[in-house]
Measured scan of single mutants.
Amino acid sequence: MDEEYDVIVLGTGLTECILSGIMSVNGKKVLHMDRNPYYGGESSSITPLEELYKRFQLLEGPPESMGRGRDWNVDLIPKFLMANGQLVKMLLYTEVTRYLDFKVVEGSFVYKGGKIYKVPSTETEALASNLMGMFEKRRFRKFLVFVANFDENDPKTFEGVDPQTTSMRDVYRKFDLGQDVIDFTGHALALYRTDDYLDQPCLETVNRIKLYSESLARYGKSPYLYPLYGLGELPQGFARLSAIYGGTYMLNKPVDDIIMENGKVVGVKSEGEVARCKQLICDPSYIPDRVRKAGQVIRIICILSHPIKNTNDANSCQIIIPQNQVNRKSDIYVCMISYAHNVAAQGKYIAIASTTVETTDPEKEVEPALELLEPIDQKFVAISDLYEPIDDGCESQVFCSCSYDATTHFETTCNDIKDIYKRMAGTAFDFENMKRKQNDVFGEAEQ
């Protein structure tokens, strides 16, 4: 370990593993360490099931009705991949897709007046949907046509809207959309967690709705994908990429100290040895004095023996409960997957309800979601602090990732990755940087 590296990475969460992969592909010498004996950090999948019970201090362990412990891979952080989103792009560019198998999530649902409705995925579904009345549908269709044709580089498509100054509230007004449709559009399509976006320039919202539609167009059922064997497969896929390009991995490796000289990182000390480096990437748990708390998320993992009611017996789905429907500031989400994804025993389902904490009784906040899941065989409640770095790391060369937020997709995580890359490399992130180099010394032969 007593060696000189360009970059040392602490923690094998998804953000850290993707950055480690990119740095290795770009010719950097990388050492990647984790104090845990497993990959994934906060974003790991726990197996066998006995391990999950232990982690949540349920000492009696799983009953026999849960089947074989080894058949379970339970995500600690519930997220899906947008089919046309940035993480899929990263997987394709790096060819990490060859280590993973994905399934399309069967449906996306939205909560309205105590019931759940399928988010329409085709024009026919939209016309048949009970989510809105006849005239509302016509106006909504006009709005969707506007979004589909919108091109930020072609003012002819703006229809009198200025993407940089017109607020989204004004765009909704222009198409005369009612409150329910606005809730549905902002939260189930643009996937905002709160209503803060309404008074911001509309460009980002329009682009988010386009991303949803384009992702949906790829597979038809929903815009989301999920990897077989759980999300823990993602960091491992990128760790393989890093290793192929010469990255060194050490799990179960305690970090005793991060060594600084004149305010700059110069190395990491572990078990009496020092590895030197020019730059350091880590998750917040490794540098508690360089991060601040930015809120909390509650996630309740529920094991069920039945599909969720009114989802047409889907073996995977997402449910969004827009905040307006339950008098909150932030949406509540449910991600459900099952034995069909090799993450649970035969006939079992895993539904994870999550939201940003707003009160001193977080469990009560998630109740509307839990009511949709009854009866629940077993619950595991996790309340996590969200951390963000206190500075950009440019001076110390210590670059810290943000905690995983309450969103049900990876777009915010990818933004964090691109942002850290830019601060480390001094140049904007470009997907081309992730391409495997042809015929290089570490390149794998085609399968």
Rank of each mutant, 00 (worst) to 15 (best):
L198P: 03
R68P: 06
F431S: 08
E358D: 01
I116T: 09
Y172W: 14
S65W: 12
K115T: 04
P163Y: 03
L373K: 14
C402I: 13
C202L: 13
P120T: 00
G426N: 15
E365N: 03
T248M: 11
E371K: 11
D440P: 08
L191R: 00
R292D: 00
P307S: 09
L373V: 12
K210D: 12
S20M: 08
D392E: 12
F109E: 03
M90I: 08
A382P: 00
R208H: 05
T97P: 08
N433V: 13
E4C: 13
I337G: 14
L58V: 07
I337T: 10
K28R: 09
S45F: 01
A369T: 06
F442M: 15
E271W: 01
F150S: 05
V96F: 09
R141P: 08
T122M: 12
N130K: 13
S270P: 03
G160F: 01
T124D: 08
R292F: 12
G347R: 04
P235T: 00
A382V: 09
E363Q: 12
K379H: 11
Y99C: 05
T194I: 09
C302R: 02
Q318E: 10
Y117D: 09
V145Y: 05
D151S: 14
K309Q: 05
D440N: 12
R98W: 05
E271R: 10
D2M: 05
K142M: 13
R436Q: 14
Y229D: 02
T97C: 13
A314D: 04
N84Y: 03
M336E: 14
S242L: 04
Y333Q: 05
G41D: 06
W72G: 04
R208I: 13
G272Q: 14
Q325L: 09
P254T: 02
S213F: 15
G113M: 12
D2H: 04
T359I: 01
C302G: 11
E233D: 09
L52Q: 08
K379M: 04
T205N: 00
A345D: 01
L241C: 01
C394Y: 08
Y219H: 09
E371Q: 07
K221V: 09
L59N: 05
D392N: 08
Q438Y: 12
P389S: 08
Q179P: 12
Y349H: 09
N36T: 07
T413I: 05
V441L: 07
K79R: 09
S338F: 01
G40A: 05
K54T: 13
P78T: 00
L49Q: 09
F442K: 13
T427H: 09
N252M: 14
V268I: 14
V7A: 09
I281M: 09
E95G: 06
G263S: 08
G61D: 09
K422A: 14
I22T: 09
F135D: 13
L59K: 14
V255K: 15
V366A: 10
R141H: 06
Y5C: 02
L10M: 01
S330V: 04
P235H: 00
D313H: 13
D385S: 14
V334D: 06
C317T: 02
T165D: 12
K221Q: 08
K269Q: 06
T157A: 05
K112R: 11
A243D: 00
R139G: 12
Y5T: 04
V274L: 10
L234R: 01
K278Y: 15
L92V: 08
V9F: 10
C400R: 04
D392H: 14
K418A: 09
V326D: 04
T12P: 02
N310Q: 06
N315D: 09
G347S: 05
G232D: 06
L31I: 03
E271V: 03
E136Q: 14
D331N: 08
N26H: 13
I298N: 08
V357L: 07
D2F: 06
V291S: 12
K418P: 03
T413V: 13
S242W: 01
T165I: 11
D405S: 14
D34M: 04
S215P: 03
P389Y: 14
K269R: 12
R138P: 09
T97N: 00
D101N: 12
G107L: 04
S167N: 11
E60A: 05
N312S: 10
I300H: 02
T185I: 13
D377E: 00
L59D: 02
Y421A: 05
D405N: 08
K309W: 09
G267A: 10
D101E: 04
S403Y: 00
M23I: 09
M434R: 01
E51Q: 04
K264H: 15
E358G: 05
K79Q: 04
G13S: 06
F442C: 13
T427G: 04
G13D: 02
C402W: 04
E204K: 11
Y53D: 01
V297A: 09
S213E: 08
Y404R: 10
